[in-house]
Design a protein around this nucleic acid. Sequence first.
DNA 1: ACTTGACGTAAAGTGAACTTTACATATAAG
DNA 2: CTTATATGTAAAGTTCACTTTACGTCAAGT
Lengths: 78, 78
Amino acid sequence: MIVNRIRELREEKMRSSSESEQWTQEGMAKRLGVSRQTVISMEKGTYNPSLILAFKLARAFGMAIEDIFEYRDDDNET
Amino acid sequence: MIVNRIRELREEKMRSSSESEQWTQEGMAKRLGVSRQTVISMEKGTYNPSLILAFKLARAFGMAIEDIFEYRDDDNET
DNA sequence: ACTTGACGTAAAGTGAACTTTACATATAAG
DNA sequence: CTTATATGTAAAGTTCACTTTACGTCAAGT
């Protein structure tokens, strides 16, 4: 399974950034080129995003994928 | 789009590793828990794997995702 | 009171990641 | 010459990431 820090990071951006509306769920969705539903699902962490989405997120936050997502091999995933 | 070094890295492992059969396409498929077709498709680079698969690959190679996959935002992907 | 913006949820649809099977080729070994 | 192993390809099926729409809540502003 995969654990992520997306919500935490996004909320920190909302607080610190001058353009906080860029960092709402909808702002992030636009920036990433996905739907708001997808942002919500990612934050919930209930699913396994594509590598491209992970790269886009990492780029948006200016971080490495490994600093946003943590992989824990508890069980049998695809 | 995403470019990767999977084939290159796997073939290097085949040459240098003592258990080279662990690094055939089929060996990798078993290790990653996917089908051999999926390994072939990944090496061809024609598609966008899941984050979990990317993590498993990175772990198999003992590298970071960013050292295996390179993200180039040429156009409009999901 | 009413609007507006940010977040949440549910449900149906689409496309692509991934599987499975089957067959074909090339190389190396016995 | 035959057998085994590694790779390639094609095609049909399944699952799930992601979309779209629609509606509901809550807090802040006017």
